[in-house]
């Protein structure tokens, strides 16, 4: 029995489970040793990628460009919440709290999606800039939701069915995503977009299945989830929808 590629990678990075046993196996098995040496050559080549030197005066140049902008972005103490809301990072840091305020989020997100994401025939009045910024961030959030959903599905779709698989973190993750997904699905349905509604509906069913699964899956249970993912071709559909959202996101003015 040879070592898997994954074992070799994590051994190389010092994070393999049973590192001592892997080391012993490598010492004894020429095939695995050759595979490991090959991996090391690849990563050594990556190490040789030249790190550029931005120059001795780089910090001074950064400061020169930065200084005039600092006075404009100085936040008032009471504005910290507003500033925080402008960063995607913080948006996700507050995601759980937003989920707790779900009723409010439904109104905000649905209004956003209804009004902006799916075009309506009537002319929309010009929005002030802060509104556009907020909408752009929300578009990014929709894209992120789809990307994160894809990641969890890919993770499970590619897991090896063994006797037991710990999926406790995936369960929690799926449970977090279900609430967000519901908001987007409802908004899509109200906006009269059956294609996107159907994809989000499929996604929600899979997420619920994962969220309600035991924290440790047997091989059979994992295969059932994998079949559910594969049968609806949901990963492909998600990529299509995400691509549509990203295109919206990349348009000038965010929409």
């Amino acid at each position: 029995m040879h070592l898997s590629e994954e074992q070799l990678v994590w051994y190389r990075y010092g994070e393999a489970k049973g590192a001592a046993a892997i080391g012993e196996h490598l010492a004894a098995c020429a095939t695995c040793r050759a595979a490991y040496q090959s991996l090391e050559r690849v990563l050594a080549a990556v190490d040789q990628m030249p790190a550029p030197d931005p120059g001795e005066n780089y910090a001074a140049a950064v400061w020169q460009r930065l200084e005039p902008r600092l006075q404009q972005c100085r936040p008032a103490q009471r504005d910290e919440g507003a500033v925080r809301s402008l960063t995607l990072t913080a948006l996700f840091a507050t995601w759980r709290r937003l989920a707790l305020a779900a009723a409010m989020a439904v109104l905000i997100v649905a209004a956003f999606l209804l009004g902006r994401f799916w075009p309506r025939p009537q002319t929309v009045a010009r929005q002030p800039i802060p509104e556009q910024v907020r909408e752009r961030i929300l578009l990014v959030a929709v894209g992120e939701h789809l990307e994160r959903s894809q990641m969890i599905l890919i993770e499970l779709a590619n897991a090896n069915p063994g006797p037991q698989l710990d999926v406790s973190s995936e369960r929690q993750w799926a449970a977090d995503l279900v609430g967000d997904n519901r908001l987007y699905r409802q908004a899509a349905a109200r906006a009269g977009d059956p294609a996107i509604t159907a994809v989000l509906d499929d996604l929600e069913r899979v997420l619920l299945e994962i969220a309600h699964s035991p924290s440790t899956l047997s091989g059979g249970e994992l295969e059932r989830i994998q079949r559910q993912i594969e049968s609806g071709d949901i990963l492909f559909k998600l990529r299509v929808v995400e691509s549509k959202v990203r295109r919206q996101e990349e348009k000038p003015n965010g929409l």
Binding site: I152, I154, S169, W173
Partner: peptide, 9 residues
């Protein structure tokens, strides 16, 4: 902001 499994993957 992802699970450890996802980061490993």
């Amino acid at each position: 902001r992802m699970s450890e499994n996802a980061a490993k993957n």
